[in-house]
Design a protein around this nucleic acid. Structure first.
Lengths: 217, 217
DNA sequence: AATTCTTTCAAACGTTTGTTTGAATTTGCA
DNA sequence: TGCAAATTCAAACAAACGTTTGAAAGAATT
């Protein structure tokens, strides 16, 4: 088996699909446009991935796996370095946001696009995709939720879970739409500055999470 | 001309399309599935709307117009009732969020779905749709942005615009995904309670907007 | 060199897509 | 009632869709 040629074809398809999914969406992207961009035969998609649905999941898995692995590693590292001390909210937020945001400012050309894709998948209607994501994010969600729970001890459950939800919204929206802040602000915001995006997002979310409870039980 | 029959056909198409767009997305919804649900002839779509793209915009416009009109009215009312006094952040947030959120708890069965659709359109890749939305939201955006600017006087421009962006993210995510909070929280959150959603969202966003600046210029 | 497995390819499969046509039907107005 | 406009309808259009096929080409193993 030609390891390199196989990898090249598969990778070409993944790269092309990734870009087109960002531009046109999953349903809006045809396999024919993918193989045209990748310069491979259309049958190669089904040979290497089996179906369009599986291709979508492969595109996502390739990026989500390292991101979510690093998220877990960084949270574990925070716990270890802190000993028995309390976790700091901003540290946990950075550990959660940065692995995804760094891809946006990363070196490889395509990596900028995938960030938008990751932000968008949560609002995709496909049930199969939602189940797939639930699996991929379970560990990250459980670990970070309990970390936040340790920090926000005084917050009632009701407020806590709502705010986790809002936090995900701010994060997904930021990942998804890389142009709006620049347009809205007339060029003041710089989405290319990974540090700026991260610190602004951390400050906003931390402020939201720490806000006084609305008085729920 | 039979006003009622015409209206009925057009409305049936709009209602059916609205529900299917929520379930399957714009690209994932075929006109044939729309006319099947609406129980009308397929040619009726092009007779009344011209094209699928125009149908999409008509579905959105029907709901967005009253929502955005009420948003502007409520902000104007706030300004008037306050006289020369300062606007209160929470009041402005409620004026912005409630017209959309109220549809979720509204009486008519279909209205629950459209809220999810409104939350999702911002992450739609279609350029034509983005231009359409930019037009529809211009007034609301400009008026509310200047209102927030009056309130958050001490916030640097950089922080201000980023936070407007994050606020939209939390709002869209909340509108878009009506099940996640319930699932995440194991039933603690109640998305059916319009008051609960509104006050939780207002508290989080207000906390985020009021957070200390990260030290930008 | 012969053989087996992997990978690529052009071509076609049947379906479904958005859109159009032209005739039939219904409606509003004189 | 009669005419003209508005609306509905069945049928068909070309194009694009995801998927499959079976043979050709390539790589690895014996």
């Amino acid at each position: 088996m030609s390891e390199s040629s196989t990898t090249d074809t598969k990778t070409s398809i993944l790269d092309a699909a990734e870009m087109l999914f960002v531009e046109k969406g999953f349903d809006g992207t045809s396999l024919r446009s993918v193989v045209a961009k990748a310069d491979v035969n259309i049958a190669a998609v089904h040979y290497h991935f089996g179906s369009k649905e599986s291709l979508i999941q492969a595109v996502l898995a390739r990026r989500l796996e390292p991101i979510n692995r690093e998220r877990l590693e960084r949270l574990a590292a925070l716990r270890e370095s802190n000993g028995k001390g309390e976790l700091q909210l901003e540290d946990v937020l950075r550990a959660l946001f940065e692995p995804a945001l760094r891809l946006a400012g990363g070196g490889e050309p395509g990596s900028n696009n995938i960030v938008r894709l990751i932000g968008r998948i949560f609002s995709e209607p496909s049930h199969a995709l939602q189940l797939f994501l639930k699996d991929r994010f379970r560990d990250v969600f459980e670990n970070y939720t309990s970390a936040f729970r340790e920090i926000l001890t005084e917050l009632p459950d009701l407020d806590f879970y709502w705010r986790i939800h809002f936090m995900l919204g701010a994060m997904c929206h930021t990942l998804c739409d890389r142009e709006r802040p620049v347009i809205l602000s007339g060029g003041v915001c710089d989405v290319e500055s990974q540090h700026e995006v991260l610190e602004q997002l951390v400050a906003f979310v931390a402020g939201g999470l720490r806000a006084q409870s609305t008085g729920g039980k």
